[in-house]
Design a protein around this nucleic acid. Structure first.
Lengths: 209, 209, 209, 209
DNA sequence: CATGAATGAGCATTCATTCAT
DNA sequence: TATGAATGAATGCTCATTCAT
C-alpha cells in the first residue's frame, strides 16, 4: 500500500523526480498524519523536508497545489493497484466485492489519504475544477466499468442507471468510513464489506439471476 | 426552531442582553452558515455585526469562547424545546420516537448548530472540560431519563445498561446525519427516524412486551 | 504611616471624598504593591476597586493623573507628619538627623510610594511641570528651612549654598535607598541614618563649632 | 567601545550576518538610547530599521529574544576587550584596578548597554535561565580568575572566598553606577575607580604584604 | 537544483478612553 | 454619583509567497 512518489505518473520511464520535490511531498504526507492541513505551515513543511520554503514554490503553485499533487499521486497509485487487484476475477459481484473491499481498505489503512479526500479538499470551492477531481473521476470510472460489464452480462439489473449504482456504492462506502475517520475509530474492511455487499447486492441484483 | 439569543438562559425575566452582544452572536451564526469557524476572523465577525473587534472581547473571553457560548445558547434552547415536545406522550417507544425525530430534525434544520456540535468543537482537546460539554450532557440526560422510565415500566429490556442504549441512539443519529452535514445534502427526518427506530426498537424491546 | 485618602488635601473641613474615588485610589495603591504601574490596566484598577472603568475618568483626567494624585496625597501626608516629627527638637543637627531618619523610614516602610517617586514618575517628560512636582518641592522645602536655620544659628557652614546641602542630603538618601528598592532588599533606617549622618555632618559641620 | 554587530562571535571568518538582521539590531540599539524597552514597539523597530516587522521574527524568536541577543553581542565584545585590556599588567591590584575602571567605563560610555543589563532584563523571571545570563557569568569569570591569581601569588587574603570578593567588587560597581544611569547623570570612571579601589583594596589586602 | 533574504497582508487580542443615561 | 455600552488605535506575532542569485 506504499505509494512511490519518486516516479512520474504518466510515464515510468521518465527521469526520476528531483530529490527536493520528493522530500517536500514526503514531509507533507508525514505532517498530515499528525495534524490538519490548514494548521500545517509552509515553514513546517520545509523544515520537515529539510529544504527551504522557496523550493516548495519551485515545484508547486502554492500550498494547496502541493496537497492536490500529493492526492493525485495517491490516486494514480491506487487506481493502478485497483485495476491490478480485480484482474482475473470473474463475475460482476465478485469483482465488485473485491473492489469495495479494496476501497474500504485504502481508507482503513491510509487515514491521511482518506482525510484529505473526504474532508480537506471538499471545503475548497474550486476543487471540482481541479486536476485532482479529474483523477478522482478516473478512479471511479474503474467502478463504473465493472458495473457496466455486469449489466451487459445480465448479472446486474438494467433498469437502474449504472452511474446511480456507482454513486450508491461509493457513497455508502464514504458514509460508512467517514465517522470512523473523523473520530479516529478503527475501520474493519472485512466486516464492512460484508455488510455493504449484503445491502447493495440484494438491491441491485436482477431477480432472475 | 429559531433560537432566540436575546434572552438570558436561566431567567427570562432578567434584563435583555446588550445589543452589541446579540449582534456579535448573530454575526457568527450567519458566518458559520457560509464557512468554517477556523476561517472566520474576528475582523469579519465584527464587521458583519457592525461593531468593533474590541467589543467581542468585552463579552467573550476569546474567539473560541464566543463559539462555545453560541453553542450553549442553542443547547439550552433545544433542551427546553425537547422537554416540551415529549410532554403528554405516553409509552417509552413513542417518547423515544419523538425524541429521535426531534434530534434529527434539529440537525436537519440547523446546519450551523450541527456543524459546530459534530465537527468544530471536537477538534479542541479541552472541549470535554468545557461548560459547553456540560450542557451537551444535560441535553443527553433527557434521553437517558426516558430510557430509564421505559426500563422501570418494563417496556425496555433491563439487561442492557441504559447509558449504552442512549449511546447507541445518539451515536446512530450522529453517524446518519454526519455525512449529510459535511456534504451539504438534505436530511429527511421522517424517513431517517423511521429507519432508525426500526433498527433500535427491535434491538432493545423486551421480548415479552 | 498610614495615609488617609478620604480627606481633601487643602482643607480638612471640606466634605469627604466620594466613596468611588476612595476605592479607586485604594485599588491602585494595592496594585502598585504587586506590580509596575505600566503593567497595571484600568480594567484591573476598576475591578479591584469594585467600580466601573468609566468612574476612573470621572475623578481623574487619565491613568497617569490618578498616579499623580495618589502621589500628591502621599506627599501631603508625609510633609505634615515630617513637620510634626521635628517639632520640639533643638539644634540643626538633631533636626536633620530626625529628618533623614524619617525620610529613609518612609522609603523603607512604603515601597509603593518609594517606587513611584524614585522610578515611575521620572520617566515622564512633563513630570517637572506637574502638580506633583510642586508638592515634591514643598516637601523638600522643609529640609531647606532646617538647613537655613542651622546656618543662621551658626551651626552649619555658611560657605556652602543651603540648596547644595539639601541636594546632597536628599541625593544621598535616594542613592542609598534606590538599589534596595529596585532589588527588593530590606532597608535599615537606623543604620543608614547613622552612616549617612556621620558622612554628611562631618562634611558640612563648621570647624569651630 | 563601539560594538561591531556585523561579525559572528565565535569565528570572524564565518559569513557576515544578513543586512536585515544588522539593521534590526542597530535600530533597537538606537531606540534604547531614547526610551524604555517596554515602550518600544516592533513596528517602531521595523520602521527604524527600514525593514518589515516580519523580518524581526525571521531572526529572533520574539521581541525579548532580540534584546537578549543584542545584549549577548555586547557582552561577548566586552569580555574580549576586557581580556585584552588587562594583558601585560602585573600584580593583582593593578589588574583589578584596570578591570574596575574598564567595567565602570563601559557603563559610563554605553548607557544603552548599562540600562539593559542593570534594569531591563532583571524584570524577567527567566533571565537567570537564559543564554544571556550565561554570558554574564562568562564575563564575571574573568574577574574571578584575576582574584584567584592574586590569592595564589599571596597578594590577596586567602581567608576570603574569591567568589565573595568578586561579588563585592561587581556589586559595588553596580550600586555606584545605577543611580547615575537611572537619573541620566554623568559617571566619572577615573574618580569612581579611585574611590572604589581605596575601599576595596584596603579591605581585602593581606596585612603582611 | 536550490537557497537566503525579505515582504505584505492579516491575525487574535489589549487597552485607555468616551459618552449617553 | 455611577454605570453599561462601545470604540479607535495599537500590539506582538504569523504565514504564504516572491525574487535575485
Amino acid at each position: 500500500m506504499q505509494l512511490s512518489v519518486n516516479r512520474d505518473m504518466k510515464n515510468s520511464k521518465e527521469k526520476p523526480l528531483p530529490p527536493g520535490r520528493i522530500k517536500i511531498v514526503l514531509a507533507l504526507k508525514s505532517l498530515l498524519g499528525q495534524k490538519d492541513f490548514s494548521t500545517i505551515t509552509t515553514a513546517e513543511i520545509a523544515k520537515t523536508a529539510g529544504v527551504t520554503e522557496a523550493l516548495i514554490y519551485k515545484y508547486f503553485k502554492d500550498k494547496r497545489d502541493l496537497l492536490h499533487q500529493l492526492l493525485s499521486e495517491y490516486l494514480e497509485q491506487y487506481r493502478a493497484q485497483l485495476l491490478q487487484s480485480i484482474r482475473g476475477i470473474n463475475g460482476a459481484f465478485n469483482r465488485l466485492r473485491k473492489l469495495i473491499w479494496y476501497h474500504i481498505n485504502v481508507y482503513a489503512t491510509n487515514r491521511v489519504f482518506a482525510k484529505i479526500l473526504l474532508i480537506e479538499v471538499r471545503n475548497y470551492p474550486d476543487y471540482y475544477k481541479s486536476e485532482t477531481y479529474k483523477r478522482v473521476k478516473e478512479y471511479s470510472d474503474v467502478v463504473l466499468k465493472v458495473i457496466e460489464e455486469g449489466v451487459q452480462n445480465a448479472e446486474i439489473r438494467s433498469d437502474l442507471p449504472p452511474k446511480l449504482i456507482r454513486y450508491g456504492i461509493l457513497g455508502s462506502i464514504e458514509q460508512v468510513c467517514l465517522s470512523g475517520i473523523i473520530f479516529g475509530k478503527k475501520i474493519n474492511p472485512d466486516e464492512l464489506t460484508e455488510q455493504l455487499c449484503e445491502f447493495i447486492f440484494s438491491g441491485i441484483k436482477k431477480e432472475s439471476s
